[in-house]
Amino acid sequence: MGTPTPLESRLSRVKTPGEPIIVFERVFLAFGDNVILKDISFELRAGFTKIFLGASGAGKSTILKLILGLLKPQTGKIWVNGVRVDTLSESDMMKVRDDVGMVFQEGALFDSLSVRENVGYKLYEESDMDLNDVHRRVEEVLGWVELEEHIDKMPSQLSGGQRRRVAIARAMTFQPRILLYDEPTTGLDPITSITIDDEIVKLRDIEGVSSLVVTHQLRDAFWVAERMAVRGPDGKVQIVPASPEKLAQTEFVMLRDGLIAFEGTASELRANNDPYLQLFLS
Protein backbone atom coordinates (compact mmCIF):
# COMPACT_ATOMS: atom_id res chain seq x y z
CA MET A 1 0.00 0.00 0.00
CA GLY A 2 3.04 2.33 0.23
CA THR A 3 3.63 4.70 3.10
CA PRO A 4 0.47 5.94 4.78
CA THR A 5 -0.48 9.54 4.11
CA PRO A 6 -0.66 11.84 7.16
CA LEU A 7 -4.46 11.53 7.14
CA GLU A 8 -4.32 7.75 7.01
CA SER A 9 -1.96 7.52 9.93
CA ARG A 10 -4.13 9.86 11.98
CA LEU A 11 -7.21 7.85 11.05
CA SER A 12 -5.57 4.71 12.36
CA ARG A 13 -5.31 6.30 15.79
CA VAL A 14 -9.00 7.10 15.79
CA LYS A 15 -9.66 5.77 19.30
CA THR A 16 -7.48 8.50 20.85
CA PRO A 17 -9.16 11.76 21.89
CA GLY A 18 -8.29 14.60 19.58
CA GLU A 19 -7.81 12.40 16.52
CA PRO A 20 -10.29 12.68 13.65
CA ILE A 21 -13.37 10.50 14.12
CA ILE A 22 -15.38 11.87 11.20
CA VAL A 23 -13.66 13.18 8.09
CA PHE A 24 -15.21 14.62 4.94
CA GLU A 25 -12.89 15.15 2.00
CA ARG A 26 -14.16 17.10 -1.01
CA VAL A 27 -17.64 15.64 -0.86
CA PHE A 28 -20.01 16.37 -3.71
CA LEU A 29 -23.67 15.35 -3.77
CA ALA A 30 -26.56 16.16 -6.08
CA PHE A 31 -30.12 14.89 -6.38
CA GLY A 32 -30.55 14.82 -10.15
CA ASP A 33 -29.71 18.34 -11.36
CA ASN A 34 -30.12 19.75 -7.88
CA VAL A 35 -26.60 20.19 -6.48
CA ILE A 36 -26.77 20.15 -2.68
CA LEU A 37 -23.14 19.80 -1.54
CA LYS A 38 -20.48 21.16 -3.89
CA ASP A 39 -17.23 20.68 -2.07
CA ILE A 40 -17.41 19.88 1.62
CA SER A 41 -14.33 19.05 3.67
CA PHE A 42 -14.20 19.03 7.46
CA GLU A 43 -12.98 17.01 10.37
CA LEU A 44 -14.61 16.18 13.67
CA ARG A 45 -12.12 15.13 16.34
CA ALA A 46 -12.91 12.55 18.99
CA GLY A 47 -14.55 14.17 22.00
CA PHE A 48 -15.10 17.45 20.15
CA THR A 49 -18.28 19.08 18.90
CA LYS A 50 -19.21 20.62 15.59
CA ILE A 51 -22.27 22.78 15.21
CA PHE A 52 -23.70 23.08 11.71
CA LEU A 53 -25.59 26.21 10.78
CA GLY A 54 -27.22 27.02 7.49
CA ALA A 55 -30.45 28.06 5.86
CA SER A 56 -33.25 25.61 5.28
CA GLY A 57 -32.31 23.32 2.40
CA ALA A 58 -28.59 24.02 2.76
CA GLY A 59 -27.92 20.29 3.10
CA LYS A 60 -27.39 19.92 6.84
CA SER A 61 -29.56 16.82 7.23
CA THR A 62 -27.95 15.46 4.09
CA ILE A 63 -24.51 15.63 5.72
CA LEU A 64 -25.73 13.64 8.71
CA LYS A 65 -27.28 11.03 6.44
CA LEU A 66 -24.01 10.74 4.55
CA ILE A 67 -22.20 9.96 7.80
CA LEU A 68 -24.61 7.12 8.51
CA GLY A 69 -24.39 5.83 4.95
CA LEU A 70 -28.10 6.43 4.40
CA LEU A 71 -27.05 8.40 1.32
CA LYS A 72 -23.92 8.07 -0.79
CA PRO A 73 -22.01 11.01 -2.24
CA GLN A 74 -21.27 11.18 -5.98
CA THR A 75 -17.63 12.04 -5.35
CA GLY A 76 -15.40 12.62 -2.36
CA LYS A 77 -14.41 10.52 0.60
CA ILE A 78 -15.95 10.08 4.04
CA TRP A 79 -14.39 8.32 7.01
CA VAL A 80 -16.25 7.44 10.17
CA ASN A 81 -14.36 5.89 13.06
CA GLY A 82 -11.46 5.15 10.76
CA VAL A 83 -13.61 3.34 8.17
CA ARG A 84 -14.16 4.68 4.68
CA VAL A 85 -17.97 4.71 4.43
CA ASP A 86 -18.76 6.30 1.07
CA THR A 87 -17.98 3.07 -0.75
CA LEU A 88 -19.12 0.65 1.95
CA SER A 89 -21.92 -1.86 1.28
CA GLU A 90 -25.11 -1.68 3.32
CA SER A 91 -24.27 -4.82 5.30
CA ASP A 92 -20.75 -3.62 6.21
CA MET A 93 -22.22 -0.25 7.07
CA MET A 94 -24.18 -1.85 9.93
CA LYS A 95 -20.98 -2.31 11.94
CA VAL A 96 -20.08 1.36 11.55
CA ARG A 97 -23.58 2.35 12.64
CA ASP A 98 -23.10 0.44 15.91
CA ASP A 99 -20.99 3.35 17.08
CA VAL A 100 -23.13 6.21 15.79
CA GLY A 101 -26.40 7.41 17.27
CA MET A 102 -28.64 9.77 15.37
CA VAL A 103 -31.46 11.99 16.53
CA PHE A 104 -33.54 12.57 13.41
CA GLN A 105 -35.03 15.92 12.56
CA GLU A 106 -38.60 15.02 13.50
CA GLY A 107 -37.56 12.32 15.96
CA ALA A 108 -38.53 9.47 13.62
CA LEU A 109 -39.82 7.42 16.54
CA PHE A 110 -41.42 4.12 15.55
CA ASP A 111 -45.07 4.89 16.11
CA SER A 112 -46.11 1.25 16.39
CA LEU A 113 -43.79 0.74 19.37
CA SER A 114 -44.02 2.02 22.93
CA VAL A 115 -41.49 4.43 24.41
CA ARG A 116 -39.72 1.50 26.10
CA GLU A 117 -39.47 -0.47 22.84
CA ASN A 118 -38.35 2.60 20.95
CA VAL A 119 -35.60 3.46 23.37
CA GLY A 120 -34.42 -0.12 23.71
CA TYR A 121 -34.95 -0.99 20.05
CA LYS A 122 -31.36 -1.76 19.16
CA LEU A 123 -30.73 -3.74 22.33
CA TYR A 124 -33.99 -5.69 22.13
CA GLU A 125 -33.81 -6.47 18.44
CA GLU A 126 -30.17 -6.40 17.41
CA SER A 127 -28.19 -7.60 20.43
CA ASP A 128 -27.93 -10.71 22.57
CA MET A 129 -28.08 -8.68 25.76
CA ASP A 130 -30.08 -10.23 28.59
CA LEU A 131 -33.65 -8.88 28.63
CA ASN A 132 -33.43 -7.76 32.25
CA ASP A 133 -30.27 -5.84 31.49
CA VAL A 134 -32.00 -4.19 28.56
CA HIS A 135 -34.95 -3.17 30.74
CA ARG A 136 -32.56 -1.71 33.26
CA ARG A 137 -30.59 0.19 30.63
CA VAL A 138 -33.78 1.59 29.07
CA GLU A 139 -34.98 2.80 32.46
CA GLU A 140 -31.60 4.32 33.19
CA VAL A 141 -31.53 6.21 29.91
CA LEU A 142 -35.10 7.42 30.31
CA GLY A 143 -34.06 8.62 33.76
CA TRP A 144 -31.36 10.70 32.08
CA VAL A 145 -33.89 12.50 29.95
CA GLU A 146 -36.39 12.56 32.83
CA LEU A 147 -39.14 10.59 31.15
CA GLU A 148 -39.34 7.46 33.37
CA GLU A 149 -43.05 7.88 34.00
CA HIS A 150 -43.82 7.79 30.27
CA ILE A 151 -42.10 4.48 29.61
CA ASP A 152 -45.26 2.59 28.64
CA LYS A 153 -46.85 5.31 26.51
CA MET A 154 -46.96 5.33 22.74
CA PRO A 155 -45.11 8.12 20.87
CA SER A 156 -48.43 9.63 19.75
CA GLN A 157 -49.29 10.28 23.41
CA LEU A 158 -46.21 12.45 23.97
CA SER A 159 -45.64 16.15 23.41
CA GLY A 160 -43.15 17.35 20.81
CA GLY A 161 -40.44 18.03 23.36
CA GLN A 162 -40.94 14.66 25.03
CA ARG A 163 -40.71 12.95 21.68
CA ARG A 164 -37.45 14.75 20.97
CA ARG A 165 -36.06 13.55 24.30
CA VAL A 166 -37.16 9.97 23.61
CA ALA A 167 -35.33 10.22 20.30
CA ILE A 168 -32.18 11.33 22.12
CA ALA A 169 -32.62 8.49 24.59
CA ARG A 170 -32.98 6.02 21.73
CA ALA A 171 -29.81 7.30 20.10
CA MET A 172 -27.77 6.97 23.28
CA THR A 173 -28.99 3.63 24.76
CA PHE A 174 -26.37 1.56 22.99
CA GLN A 175 -23.63 3.96 24.09
CA PRO A 176 -22.31 5.08 20.72
CA ARG A 177 -19.17 7.23 20.71
CA ILE A 178 -20.59 9.54 18.07
CA LEU A 179 -23.95 11.30 18.29
CA LEU A 180 -25.58 13.23 15.47
CA TYR A 181 -28.36 15.64 16.36
CA ASP A 182 -30.57 17.02 13.61
CA GLU A 183 -32.26 20.17 14.90
CA PRO A 184 -32.93 18.75 18.35
CA THR A 185 -34.57 21.94 19.65
CA THR A 186 -36.40 23.40 16.66
CA GLY A 187 -39.98 24.25 17.49
CA LEU A 188 -39.59 23.85 21.24
CA ASP A 189 -40.01 26.45 23.96
CA PRO A 190 -36.82 27.94 25.48
CA ILE A 191 -37.09 25.97 28.74
CA THR A 192 -37.42 22.60 27.04
CA SER A 193 -34.71 23.56 24.56
CA ILE A 194 -32.29 24.22 27.39
CA THR A 195 -32.97 20.82 28.97
CA ILE A 196 -32.15 19.22 25.63
CA ASP A 197 -29.01 21.36 25.24
CA ASP A 198 -27.96 20.21 28.70
CA GLU A 199 -28.36 16.57 27.64
CA ILE A 200 -26.07 17.20 24.69
CA VAL A 201 -23.51 18.88 26.94
CA LYS A 202 -23.71 16.08 29.53
CA LEU A 203 -23.29 13.35 26.94
CA ARG A 204 -20.29 15.15 25.52
CA ASP A 205 -18.51 15.95 28.75
CA ILE A 206 -19.49 13.05 31.02
CA GLU A 207 -19.70 10.22 28.49
CA GLY A 208 -17.02 11.54 26.16
CA VAL A 209 -19.25 11.43 23.09
CA SER A 210 -18.19 13.24 19.92
CA SER A 211 -21.13 15.26 18.68
CA LEU A 212 -22.33 16.86 15.53
CA VAL A 213 -25.24 19.22 16.08
CA VAL A 214 -27.37 20.74 13.35
CA THR A 215 -29.45 23.70 14.44
CA HIS A 216 -31.10 26.94 13.41
CA GLN A 217 -31.37 28.16 16.97
CA LEU A 218 -28.29 30.23 17.70
CA ARG A 219 -29.16 30.50 21.36
CA ASP A 220 -28.97 26.72 21.67
CA ALA A 221 -25.82 26.57 19.58
CA PHE A 222 -24.01 29.02 21.83
CA TRP A 223 -25.37 27.30 24.93
CA VAL A 224 -23.87 24.00 23.82
CA ALA A 225 -20.60 25.68 22.83
CA GLU A 226 -20.16 27.80 25.93
CA ARG A 227 -21.21 25.46 28.72
CA MET A 228 -19.73 22.31 30.07
CA ALA A 229 -20.86 19.56 32.41
CA VAL A 230 -18.81 18.61 35.46
CA ARG A 231 -19.41 16.24 38.29
CA GLY A 232 -19.70 18.21 41.53
CA PRO A 233 -18.22 17.02 44.82
CA ASP A 234 -21.54 15.27 45.64
CA GLY A 235 -21.33 13.27 42.41
CA LYS A 236 -24.15 15.26 40.78
CA VAL A 237 -23.66 16.58 37.28
CA GLN A 238 -23.62 20.36 37.04
CA ILE A 239 -23.68 22.62 34.02
CA VAL A 240 -21.13 25.42 34.31
CA PRO A 241 -19.55 27.97 31.92
CA ALA A 242 -17.00 26.28 29.69
CA SER A 243 -13.28 26.47 30.36
CA PRO A 244 -11.07 27.97 27.61
CA GLU A 245 -9.91 24.56 26.40
CA LYS A 246 -13.53 23.31 26.29
CA LEU A 247 -14.45 26.40 24.28
CA ALA A 248 -11.77 25.52 21.76
CA GLN A 249 -13.26 22.05 21.32
CA THR A 250 -16.48 23.30 19.79
CA GLU A 251 -16.47 24.65 16.28
CA PHE A 252 -19.20 26.23 14.22
CA VAL A 253 -19.61 25.40 10.56
CA MET A 254 -21.74 27.56 8.32
CA LEU A 255 -23.06 25.98 5.13
CA ARG A 256 -23.95 28.16 2.19
CA ASP A 257 -24.59 27.26 -1.44
CA GLY A 258 -23.12 23.82 -1.01
CA LEU A 259 -19.87 25.13 0.45
CA ILE A 260 -18.54 25.79 3.91
CA ALA A 261 -18.78 29.57 4.31
CA PHE A 262 -17.32 29.77 7.80
CA GLU A 263 -15.61 27.48 10.24
CA GLY A 264 -14.43 28.54 13.69
CA THR A 265 -15.12 28.84 17.40
CA ALA A 266 -17.96 30.69 19.05
CA SER A 267 -15.92 33.85 19.64
CA GLU A 268 -14.63 33.82 16.07
CA LEU A 269 -18.21 33.50 14.86
CA ARG A 270 -19.30 36.42 16.99
CA ALA A 271 -16.37 38.54 15.80
CA ASN A 272 -16.90 37.74 12.13
CA ASN A 273 -18.40 40.58 10.15
CA ASP A 274 -19.37 38.82 6.94
CA PRO A 275 -22.76 40.33 6.04
CA TYR A 276 -24.46 36.94 5.38
CA LEU A 277 -23.23 35.58 8.68
CA GLN A 278 -24.35 38.71 10.49
CA LEU A 279 -27.78 38.35 8.90
CA PHE A 280 -27.90 34.82 10.19
CA LEU A 281 -26.77 35.82 13.66
CA SER A 282 -29.22 38.69 14.15
Binding site: Q105, D111, R170
Partner: peptide
Amino acid sequence: SMAVTDQLNALRALGTDPVRK
Protein backbone atom coordinates in the same frame (compact mmCIF):
# COMPACT_ATOMS: atom_id res chain seq x y z
CA SER B 1 -45.61 6.93 6.24
CA MET B 2 -42.58 5.26 7.80
CA ALA B 3 -40.57 6.26 4.73
CA VAL B 4 -41.62 9.91 4.72
CA THR B 5 -41.07 10.35 8.47
CA ASP B 6 -37.55 8.91 8.29
CA GLN B 7 -38.53 5.83 10.29
CA LEU B 8 -37.04 3.57 7.62
CA ASN B 9 -33.80 5.53 7.87
CA ALA B 10 -33.98 5.30 11.65
CA LEU B 11 -34.30 1.52 11.35
CA ARG B 12 -31.22 1.39 9.17
CA ALA B 13 -29.37 3.71 11.51
CA LEU B 14 -30.15 1.32 14.38
CA GLY B 15 -28.74 -1.61 12.45
CA THR B 16 -31.93 -3.16 11.07
CA ASP B 17 -32.51 -3.93 7.42
CA PRO B 18 -36.05 -2.70 6.60
CA VAL B 19 -36.49 -5.42 3.97
CA ARG B 20 -35.83 -8.07 6.58
CA LYS B 21 -37.81 -6.47 9.36
